[in-house]
Amino acid sequence: MRIIFTTVFGLLLSASLLTGQELKVYDTFDEFEEVLKKDDGKIHVVNFWATWCAPCVKEIPFFEELGAKYDNVEVTLVSIDFKNTIDRRVKPFLAKKNFASQVVLLGDPKPNDWIDRVDPSWSGAIPATYVYRGDTAQFYEQEFHSLAELEAIIHPFIKSK
């Protein structure tokens, strides 16, 4: 009995280690909005991506580098994968990539109601990135191709301190 218990416990433990961090899932944009409103003095870089979006996946390493390089920059990767693909797609993907950045999933199924609440200039195409510090924010509907490009967009926020 104890062996079975230990085995099961061990399996669960290794499973949780393999999947890395817990994926926080927001069912509504109202709940998610806290990600865009952290007033802690840090520069927040919020990247909207999905496992199916090839250019998004390609640029994530630069966001990882950015978060690793700057202590006062917090990167959040917001997956907009569908909720019914979390177990079969998103979690295995995250387990494989083992990102250091925080990953959350925005599962609000009505994008027309929330895209403008991120930024009115956003057409809804991804990748897209929202950078903010306190009340100052900037939105980018584009791909990034290097760490240097990301450093360029956070630069004004560093100076503004």
Partner: peptide, 13 residues
């Protein structure tokens, strides 16, 4: 005018 998530149109960088 409405908005939706979608894949960016693929152009050369």
């Amino acid at each position: 005018l409405t908005k939706a998530i979608g894949c960016s149109i693929k152009v050369k960088a």
